[in-house]
Simulated scan of single mutants.
Amino acid sequence: MTCVTDEAARANLARLASAGGHSFASLSTRIGRNVAYLQQFVKRGTPRRLPEDERRALAMILQVDERLLGARDPWAPEAGAASPGGASCSRSEA
């Protein structure tokens, strides 16, 4: 899965909340924010992106992949790159 745009994350949140029978107000309070927080995020675009901890909490509440709410794909090395055990970092003894 690739990351979604900020606009798609807002649309996904609106769709998922509605499908799950959740109001923006109830979800906002469940993540420790004021009742208007998620409504402002979806309708006004403020904040531009949800902070990581809030996004993760919403994904857990809604039981969805966090990337649907705007999380980026995790970084991974290119295929064929050294594995964690394959590279050595040694310092010279002086």
Rank of each mutant, 00 (worst) to 15 (best):
R10C: 03
R91A: 14
A14V: 03
R48I: 09
S18Q: 13
V4A: 05
A14F: 12
G86K: 02
A9E: 07
R15Y: 05
R48M: 04
F41W: 06
D6H: 09
E93W: 15
G80S: 09
T2S: 13
L58D: 02
A79L: 10
G45P: 04
H22V: 02
P84F: 13
L58M: 05
A79H: 02
A82I: 10
C89T: 09
A94H: 10
H22T: 00
D73K: 03
A36R: 12
S26M: 09
P77I: 04
R10Q: 05
V64C: 14
E54T: 02
L68G: 00
G32H: 11
L68F: 06
E66R: 10
S26Y: 01
R44Q: 15
A82E: 06
D6K: 12
A82C: 05
K43Y: 05
A9N: 03
A81F: 07
L38G: 03
R55W: 05
D65R: 08
E54Q: 13
A9P: 02
A57F: 00
F41T: 01
M60I: 09
F41E: 00
G20N: 10
A81M: 08
A25K: 12
R15N: 07
A71R: 06
A79Y: 02
G20S: 12
S26T: 12
E78F: 04
S83M: 09
R91W: 14
S23Q: 08
G86S: 08
R49Y: 06
V35C: 05
R49I: 03
V35H: 11
L69N: 01
A71K: 02
T29G: 00
G45F: 12
V64L: 08
G21H: 08
A59S: 12
R30P: 00
V64A: 08
